[in-house]
């Protein structure tokens, strides 16, 4: 196998991307690779990307700058090089993102020479599409309106997302190609049968599908693949010193939108982020893992799930993810 050790707290994102435009036959012949589970996951994801791109009129790849969408974008490059991607890349920007993530997003997409669409929650607020929840409130749920508006504006009929079934019990139920009606709703009781690899994404005007090529990947698979492929990430995934405030059992980064409330103490900790989302509802974990290998070792012994450790947006109710997905969330 060709396991490239690409450790380091912060690799320059996408070192391999630059050579993606060369005809791939020109690179050196790799050693024969065993077909292990990562190779099969990769192959299946590429299959889904090609299948949906071929069968939809206006596909788009949703890219948050997080690790899963970084893997997804990397797989898209592998599926379609030496040509350009047959779809644009879109970020739904809550306006409360970590600056490191926005920087990574812009660098990565421009390095690939692909087209980036930014759908802004702030725009939705300014245009009166959604109420302004206030300076310090989470904009997580508002993303749904912004996303659905952007889908309508661009007539997207297929949206690739990096969601994984191991993230949440509602996602565990979702198809690889998940149908959305004209209101963007997911109806978990009426999912299309999805047999073998016969992904079927035909829709009427106004409807669309969400396509999840990483459905069968686990958090550990993602990190092992990042290591093997040398995929760059925003540096907030790696341990660093940061001012945090503890709230509802989570460590939130002190920033423009997260100010300590009366009685909350600010302290400096060595932390990293296990997921990346809106800064107001994404918690950090105490960690000293500064390399991909150290992260793999850390999550392998973790007793807390990825979202359980870090996401306030899943704590509203027992079925918070299902409820949001029914409304059209990612």
């Amino acid at each position: 196998m060709t396991d490239t050790q690409t450790d380091g707290p912060y690799r320059t994102p996408g070192v391999r991307a630059a050579d993606g435009l060369t005809p791939h036959g020109e690179r050196p012949r790799p050693r024969p690779r065993r077909v292990d589970h990562l190779a099969l996951l990769e192959s299946h994801a590429i299959f889904v990307l090609r299948e949906v791109a071929a069968e939809s009129e206006h596909p788009v790849l949703l890219f948050s700058g997080g690790k899963d969408s970084a893997v997804l974008l990397h797989l898209a490059v592998k599926a379609f090089r030496p040509a350009g991607l047959p779809f644009p890349v879109m970020h739904v920007d809550t306006g409360h993102n970590f600056p490191e993530v926005i920087k990574f997003r812009d660098e990565r997409v421009s390095q690939l020479g692909e087209r980036l669409i930014v759908a802004s929650v702030q725009d939705s607020i300014d245009r009166g599409r959604v109420p302004d929840p206030g300076q310090n409130a989470s904009r997580n749920r508002l993303q749904t309106t912004t996303l659905l508006d952007a889908i309508a504006e661009h007539s997207f009929d297929a949206c690739f997302g990096g969601a994984r079934r191991d993230e949440d019990k509602a996602r565990a139920k979702e198809r690889v190609l998940s149908f959305r009606d004209t209101f963007g709703q997911w109806d978990p009781k009426r999912q299309r049968p999805e047999l073998w690899h016969l992904y079927q994404g035909r829709v009427q005007p106004g409807e669309h599908v969400r396509a999840f090529p990483l459905s069968d990947w686990t958090e550990l698979d993602i990190w092992q693949y990042i290591r093997r492929e040398g995929i760059g990430l925003p540096d907030i995934y790696f341990a660093h010193r940061r001012l945090v405030v503890e709230r509802d059992g989570m460590l939130l980064a002190v920033c423009d939108w997260v100010a300590p409330a009366p009685g909350e103490a600010v302290r400096e900790e060595t932390v990293r982020f296990r997921t990346v989302g809106d800064a107001t509802c994404t918690g950090a974990v105490v960690s000293t893992a500064r390399t991909v290998t150290q992260i793999i070792d850390e999550i392998a012994v973790s007793r807390v799930s990825e979202r359980g450790a870090t996401r306030a947006d899943d704590r509203f109710s027992e079925t918070a993810m299902e409820d949001r997905k029914r409304e059209g969330y990612f």
Binding site: D166, D168, A172, K173, E322
Partner: peptide
């Protein structure tokens, strides 16, 4: 553990496939 949907828990049945790893 696998019946994650609201309706499944209400009715105590499985409606759709859950994939676990």
């Amino acid at each position: 553990i696998t019946d994650g949907l609201r309706a499944e828990r209400e009715q105590g049945i499985t409606i759709d496939v859950a994939y676990r790893y």
